[in-house]
């Protein structure tokens, strides 16, 4: 898919995040374009999750803006932020399904709270959403009875309950076996193609990245910001930055200052 650069859904402007004196990243700016799958990568501790949390309105940045339809979600009141939240869906690392509710009740919750639909229609919508994520028939299971991959898919169904404009995924394939991870990737691609949903995904999984990403943003801990941006294949082939190549080639970066002691 060609990314329509001219049509950003979310604009991140000069974002800085700090924990006390510790600067996580500084002056980060980028756009999330309509219908694209944007993957945010980087080594552990580079601030990917922090960035995601700020983008979904859970944390406040130290400075900077995040614009969604002209509204800066970092500074608006809680009420307006809730409007934004109805337009996004988030899949947390572990699925974050409510353990005291069945799968059906998990998906039902946003539909009951935010729409005026009658129960029959809500039931049908739930069946449709479960069908989309290949979980048809699992309505009355509790989250504890599902496998890791199924939990994630149920989480996606809940995240998509209100047909959001943007879906966020934290550590998409963390803790999943390769087959389940690949199924999840297919689901992501299918959903993106069929519904045109914009997606922002944080992941480490290189295979996933090549398969699903339209565009990759790479954050770096030392640089405290974005060190690379582009299509994953291009980054793999053309990047000269050692931080980028080492990530895409899965190699430890060569540190010229590192002293090695060999035992003969």
């Amino acid at each position: 898919m060609d990314v329509e650069k001219t049509n950003p859904v979310i604009v991140v402007k000069n974002l800085t995040a700090r924990f006390g004196d510790n600067v996580v990243f500084e002056d980060v700016s980028f756009e999330v374009c309509k219908g694209e799958i944007l993957v945010i990568v980087g080594a552990s501790g580079c601030g990917k999750s922090t960035l995601l949390k700020i983008m979904i309105g859970l944390n406040k940045p130290f400075s900077g803006q995040i614009l969604y339809q002209g509204m800066d979600i970092t500074s608006v009141e809680e009420k307006e932020l809730n409007l934004y939240r109805q337009n996004i869906g988030v899949l947390f690392q572990s699925g974050a399904l409510f353990s005291s509710m069945t799968i059906k009740e998990n998906i039902e919750l946003p539909l009951q709270e935010y729409t005026d639909l009658d129960p029959v229609m809500i039931d049908t919508i739930i069946k449709m959403k479960l069908g989309m994520v290949n979980l048809a028939g699992y309505e009355n299971y509790s989250p504890a009875e599902l496998s890791g991959g199924m939990k994630k898919r149920a989480g996606i169904a809940r995240a998509m309950a209100l047909d959001p404009q943007v879906l966020f995924f934290d550590e998409l394939s963390a803790g999943l076996d390769p087959v389940t991870a690949a199924e999840l990737d297919d689901l992501i691609i299918k959903t993106n193609e069929a519904l045109g949903t914009t997606m922002v995904i944080v992941t480490h999984e290189l295979e996933s990245i090549y398969k699903i990403a339209h565009r990759v943003l790479m954050l770096d801990k030392e640089a405290k910001g974005i060190v690379a941006e582009g299509k994953p294949q291009d980054l793999k082939k053309n990047a000269t930055d050692p931080r980028v190549t080492s990530f895409f080639l899965r190699q430890k970066p060569v540190d010229p200052g590192e002293k090695r002691f060999y035992v003969k």
Binding site: T124, K127, M128, L130, G131, M132, G137, Y138, A194, L195
Partner: peptide, 16 residues
């Protein structure tokens, strides 16, 4: 595309 994600089977699927 939107119509394509609605699976008739899923709608008819009885709860397990």
């Amino acid at each position: 595309g939107i119509f394509s994600v609605i699976h008739e089977n899923a709608l008819m699927q009885r709860s397990f």
